[in-house]
């Protein structure tokens, strides 16, 4: 099956590969996986606590080209968005942008799950921190 040019571009030059300190209170980490294909995807966001804007995003994915491209694109989409805007990102946006074929749609779903997991992790952290401060 041929990959689209956009998938190949992200696969060959993945953006924002790497990791951030998961213990940093401003960093949210999402780790998701698809057992069917054996993919694992880690996606992290760094949020500015005063503005609520995502200032940085990193990922590392072990999986097929489409899974790598989906998460690479996801990190690009995340930067500059607020936490709530990030939660509104739909996998269909990734599908359209990368022209993913139907058999690879689950890769975009995985990326959406990773975004949600990272944001949820960040929100949980801040909620805990606030609870600790309140005490």
């Amino acid at each position: 099956m041929a990959y689209s040019d956009k998938v190949l571009d992200h696969y060959n030059n993945p953006r924002n590969v790497g990791s951030m300190d998961k213990n940093d209170p401003n960093v949210g980490t999402g780790m998701v996986g698809a057992p069917e294909c054996g993919d694992v995807m880690k996606l992290q966001v760094k949020v500015n606590p005063t503005t609520g804007i995502i200032e940085d995003a990193k990922f590392k994915t072990f999986g097929c080209g489409s899974a790598i491209a989906s998460s690479s694109l996801a990190t690009e989409m995340l930067k500059g968005k607020t936490v709530d805007e990030a939660l509104a990102i739909k996998n269909t946006e990734i599908v359209n942008e990368l022209a993913l074929p139907p058999v690879k749609i689950h890769c975009s779903v995985l990326a959406e799950d990773a975004i949600k997991a990272a944001i949820t992790n960040y929100k949980d952290k801040t909620a805990k921190e606030q609870a600790a401060v309140a005490q």
Binding site: M31, P35, V40
Partner: peptide
């Protein structure tokens, strides 16, 4: 048992598989 979402995979397993992949890389 076909398409499965990440919620079906325990986080410890993902963590472990991720680390193994990192080591392999």
């Amino acid at each position: 048992v076909g398409e499965q979402r990440s919620k079906d995979v325990p986080p410890e397993l993902l963590e472990e598989v991720f680390e193994l992949n990192m080591a392999l890389e």
